[in-house]
Design a protein around this nucleic acid. Sequence first.
DNA 1: CGAGTTAAATCAAGCCCTGAAATAAGCAGT
DNA 2: ACTGCTTATTTCAGGGCTTGATTTAACTCG
Lengths: 394, 394
Amino acid sequence: MAERKRGTVRDLRRDNRSVLLRALYFGEPRSRQELSAETGLSPASVSNVVRDLMNEGIVVEVGSVDSDGGRPRVLLRVNPEYGQVIGVDVGETRVQVELFDLAMTERAKADYPLEHGHDPSEVVPRILAGVEAVMADAGVDASSVLGVGIGVPGVVRQRPEVIVEAQTLGWYSVPLERLLRAGTELPLLIDNGANTMGRAELWFGSGRGARNAVIGLIGSGVGSAVISDGSPDRGSDASAGEWGHTPLIVDGRRCRCGNIGCLEAYVGAEAMLERYTEAGGPPLSGDQETALASLILEAACPDTVAALIVDETVCYLGASIGGLINLLNPERIILGGWAGLLLGDRYLDALRAAASRHTLHHLYNTTSIELCRLGPDAVALGAATLPLENFLTG
Amino acid sequence: MAERKRGTVRDLRRDNRSVLLRALYFGEPRSRQELSAETGLSPASVSNVVRDLMNEGIVVEVGSVDSDGGRPRVLLRVNPEYGQVIGVDVGETRVQVELFDLAMTERAKADYPLEHGHDPSEVVPRILAGVEAVMADAGVDASSVLGVGIGVPGVVRQRPEVIVEAQTLGWYSVPLERLLRAGTELPLLIDNGANTMGRAELWFGSGRGARNAVIGLIGSGVGSAVISDGSPDRGSDASAGEWGHTPLIVDGRRCRCGNIGCLEAYVGAEAMLERYTEAGGPPLSGDQETALASLILEAACPDTVAALIVDETVCYLGASIGGLINLLNPERIILGGWAGLLLGDRYLDALRAAASRHTLHHLYNTTSIELCRLGPDAVALGAATLPLENFLTG
DNA sequence: CGAGTTAAATCAAGCCCTGAAATAAGCAGT
DNA sequence: ACTGCTTATTTCAGGGCTTGATTTAACTCG
């Protein structure tokens, strides 16, 4: 991401335009006058900028509201048809591609199972095919697509070139952007899947409006996205958010990362199932997801091995959430991921209680702990917000 | 802190001026030409802004360098004599006030022991007296003082009015700014002492140039300042940074915060001494500070109780540092506080090793763990950076 | 149907940044 | 000392931007 230029009077215009566009995008339809009051820009400037935006087709008028006795206010909003964005979710078992209009209404979707492994040579063609397919399906031309966002399960380094390290896919230093670039002209934006999912919740889910939040994602493992002051805190190397490897139990279980006592060694689905087996729980059938579901179902009966494991997990997770609140004082903690939701659906209150036991009072009181609201497509949706954000920034 | 206005062509000027002023302040003396290249502003604009700054006396010329064959470059720098800033460190036992010029050279200092308790009615007059004293001492007029920064040991809420909660002082909801306002016209800026100390390290100590860092302060307890993307991350309520209460040992020791297993229940000076006593260590004389020093000295002999406690402490602290690195991926971890330095002086390498055992490899490799470089006056120095920052921002 | 009211557009003024051109301030050689 | 040559800084005209004031538009109400 190149340093955004600043300093000329033209950049000023771009900034103001962006401010207005964002206000319109994230809020209800509004009149120029209201926009002026809201953004602090003069009515004259709002008029000017809006004229440009309307000429470009980005903003449209949508009716008007009577004002007692005067000229009615004309309501404006972003034209959802102005363009489209594409979001890609690269998972361990499939590649999912979705196309959205600017209102983030899904317009087309394509799904490609990864039956022959997940080597880049398998994945890249499917992403490209998916992008073509959704554009064809939705009947839109590449020229109106603002960009493609891609969420991958691994660490994404942005500089000097986009490089993906995804152990679970067996990807080591894969120059994903370069590989895709051979097959498309569209702007490509790549980020970690947990981050894109976090973005989705932040923009359209439980995180709406929060300026400081942590989105915790519990699936097979544990990841997170830290939002500080309205934008994701990526750390020095764009690889922040490894919540799962916070030490929680000194001299504890060995984690798959090789270290000892990590949160993920207790709280991810994989760890929960292992702990269940180690504790002598009766065997569970099915894949990880169904197994964990039965585990949690069984935990409803007190005094079972499952109940013990789940209680412990809630304790551990709550404690770690408490630590996050103490350290970062976010206004919201948002819990998601398939395993997180499975757990949260039944144990959210218990989690809150566990967290409160490890949080300084005055901090706990200014924070809320909630579940993700978006479904399984959130990774793709969040990925699609990457080009959307670029569009809004101008 | 009012929302900074943006959007007019005048604000643009202010921003550009600020960019130049910061570049000059933090760097070596430089020519206009170099500034232009560095900031991206046109040479013409640099000339204009610099002319203003020189007319105001903020920037001065300091010699010139020959250029091979052409007109020599005139070197510019911020005039340290343009103004002064005052930093106040409100501690549990004394109030310290220091006056600095813009180069942050100390020009005067005043110290007031708090012999009659630390009620605001004791502290406030001493702060005011100190401010007057250092101005008189340095022979500067209030009109050239840019502001007073104050670091207090507690949680500082900035809105809607500055309110300090400082349990260790027995302060509950103290409107410190309002109380001081009765006695001075100078701009007042108040923040948590750990934060101001962190600012000092970030600006002038081990943190110079870091954009993502965590400054961990270990004294009697454990606090921290999280720097994300160049500025302190204060969380939603300006009270982030409570690293000390991160859960580290499930079912562990009770912490003075009332919760269980906090880092601070193991790693602060108070906790270390308690653990030492509980483990049957021979009694240590003197106040907390000398006691801890002897404890650490004794730990040099293997197989003593002290050695056990210190080893454990290093393990715990290292683990927690690892967690910070995983979560935030900072480029630097800076360890300070009197107890932190005492420990770090002898055990920094052990700490690094302990941290690396709890950090994902690729994250550990992009981070360095260092000790604070500034002395005991860092709180006041950091507090003084508060008005300095306002000055640089314009 | 005209007076009153409110919303939006237009206009002139005032700033700001920039590239180009002009000026300043040295060096090297003669 | 003088003439070119080189490089740094300033000056200047041009083009943009935002803004408060002024118009114009679009209704309501009596």
